[in-house]
């Protein structure tokens, strides 16, 4: 593969191959010398138009573990604030020698614009665009689920519940596409005002009760982060109301099966969408997700830059 801007670009086989590679590459984490020479001499630019320390650091570590050179370009401190277009920014970075551009952008579709328009020949990896997609997040979630259930192939039959602000969530969209590709069953739950139109056509059942969904014994519960600026007004009346219906609190935690897992893309708002008790429960795989993030991003960078496997 040359680019990764959407899960739609992956087949089931190529997604599984990526997860297999990530699984192998994750072992580098456990070594004394955490480095492979695979991308020596390659330059990876983290082009971030939106703040995201965690995702940027994860991509940075992934590139460095593969011996690539890494440049971090943040829009706030650059010519972008002077009105430079996306095209000019990308072409400038390529002229400086970028082989891959990892892009985070507040506007849906910006990575696709970079990849599709012949503006540049570098690989483009989507690190989150608007409310469109965050494909490496979905891949790291899938890798975590595979590890927890002991699968080395797909996720067929796995029941996954995604809870929260689906409307604005690129994590939910990428997960929905990838989980369907891998054979999992997805249910989404959240306030009606945050369930987007037509989402069932993308392969999800919709629930308007967290309790009802938990009663169906999901194998994984993915809690989405609630952005505080959306806690009041248009979508629901208060964060108390939100938490009362949609937080993974201790009561709901007790409904969860013993071998279920709790996932969260981070950063968590403890006390809002997830209680500390749930966040620190042994079933919570949040830190495993973070580690897998590095492995998945290594696999994606390698896949895009080695020019080999599809």
């Amino acid at each position: 593969m040359k680019h990764l801007t959407s899960i739609r670009e992956l087949s089931k086989a190529s997604a599984i191959a990526l997860l297999d590679n990530a699984q192998q590459l994750s072992q580098v984490n456990d070594r004394d010398v955490k480095k492979l020479p695979a991308l020596r001499g390659k330059t990876v630019v983290n082009l971030f138009f939106e703040n995201s320390t965690r995702t940027r650091i994860s991509f940075e570590i992934a590139a460095k573990r593969l011996s690539a050179d890494v440049i971090n370009f943040s829009a706030e401190s650059s010519s972008v604030s002077k009105g430079e277009t996306l095209k000019d920014t990308a072409q400038t970075l390529e002229a400086l020698g970028a082989d891959a551009i990892v892009i985070r952008h507040p506007l849906s579709g910006a990575p696709k614009n970079l990849a599709a328009n012949n503006w540049i020949s570098a690989s483009v990896i989507n690190a989150g665009d608007g409310s469109h997609e965050h494909p490496t997040q979905a891949l790291l979630d899938a890798l975590t689920m595979r590890q927890v259930i002991g699968s080395t192939t797909d996720l067929s039959g796995l029941k996954v519940l995604i809870v929260g602000d689906i409307l604005h969530s690129r994590v939910a969209r990428s997960n929905l596409l990838l989980l369907n590709l891998l054979g999992a069953e997805v249910e989404i739950a959240g306030p009606n005002s945050l369930i987007p139109e037509g989402i069932e056509e993308l392969g999800a059942t919709i629930s308007n009760s967290f309790e009802n969904s938990l009663a169906k014994k999901p194998n994984a519960v993915m809690m989405l982060r609630v952005q505080k600026e959306r806690m009041q007004g248009e979508y629901f009346t208060s964060h108390q109301e939100y938490s009362r219906h949609w937080a993974l609190d201790s009561e709901r935690l007790s409904m969860l099966g013993a071998d279920s897992m709790i996932l969260h893309p981070g950063p968590m708002n403890r006390g809002f969408e997830i209680s500390s008790e749930a966040a620190d429960d042994p079933r919570s795989k949040v830190l495993q997700q973070v580690s897998n993030g590095v492995a998945v991003r290594m696999a994606v960078l390698y896949g895009c830059l080695s020019g080999g496997q599809s």
Binding site: R173, L177, E197, G198
Partner: peptide, 13 residues
């Protein structure tokens, strides 16, 4: 246009 596609693409319907 609003619908499943605008939802998937993250563009306001």
């Amino acid at each position: 246009n609003s619908g499943a596609l605008s939802t998937e693409l993250g563009l306001k319907g």
